[in-house]
């Protein structure tokens, strides 16, 4: 090994080394950045249960997430029961079929009425009936998209509505901690927002413990992925306003 390469290695400049806790321009991705950038949502899981200890370790990452006023407004419910998960999938599919029947003006037998209903509901809930979840409702109803994508373990995150300031944001931070930790440990994960529909089922509310002060926000599907779905991809650049020296610049 030449002296320059030793020097390079010491300063973390060796290609692919990506040392932690330091930065210089144009350096390689460090392991944490690599996990963040290469994580993709996994939507096809192997039929192999995740070891209990591994799930416990992932939950541990969530427990140490930062939260407003250290309020820790979360509660985890882990479901690893295949029958229960299948039943949940069936429940959500049925709800989606009802929604599709009511709102999908392309296929609904209600015709014009469903178009009017959809227009009204979209205006009432523009986020929940955004074109993307609207399409997902159709796909779940048709059986083309599975709720948990066949994951053997699902972590439900409940929000304590009495949390400090913005508990929903804390839930997101907590979940991201767990998702990144899971990926670094070789697991695949996917956020599932459609679990919100469980709030309409008395049985699920009881089973998952949804009731004041807890509200079900999101779920994370966990399992070993089929193939190698991780990798860096292209994403849109976002315009950033940059104020410095009394002037505004626009950077991307």
């Amino acid at each position: 090994m030449t002296s320059t390469s030793v020097e390079e290695k010491k300063r973390g400049r060796k290609a692919g080394s990506g040392e932690m806790y330091t930065w210089h321009e144009g350096m390689d991705w460090n392991p944490v950045e690599k996990v963040i950038l290469e994580r993709r949502s996994v939507r096809k899981y192997r039929d192999e249960q995740v070891p209990e200890k591994l799930v416990r370790r992932v939950l541990e990452a969530g427990r140490f997430a930062p939260s407003a006023g250290n309020s820790q407004p979360w509660r985890f419910v882990v479901v690893r029961d295949r029958d229960m998960l299948d039943e949940m999938e069936k429940y959500v599919r049925l709800r989606c079929r009802v929604l599709k029947f009511m709102l999908d003006w392309e296929s609904s037998p209600l015709g014009r009425l469903s178009w009017l209903l959809a227009q009204a509901y979209i205006r009432l809930m523009p986020n929940k009936l955004h074109p993307i979840p609207f399409g997902a409702i159709r796909l779940i109803a048709d059986g083309k998209l599975k709720l948990f994508h066949g994951a053997p373990t699902v972590i439900f995150i409940l929000e304590d509505v009495r949390g400090v300031s913005k508990p929903q944001v804390d839930i997101g931070i907590c979940g991201q901690n767990m998702v990144l930790a899971a990926h670094s440990l070789g697991l695949g994960t996917c956020w599932v927002g459609f679990v919100e529909l469980f709030k309409f089922g008395t049985k699920w509310k009881k089973k998952l413990g949804i009731g004041w002060p807890y509200r079900l926000i999101e779920a994370i599907a966990l399992g070993y992925p089929v193939g190698r779905p991780d990798g860096m991809v292209a994403r849109e650049l976002h315009e950033i306003d940059w104020w410095e020296g009394g002037r505004k610049r626009t950077v991307f």
Partner: peptide
Amino acid sequence: HRAEMVPPRNF
């Protein structure tokens, strides 16, 4: 406020 899609850039 969007532009074209690009892969991650290591500044």
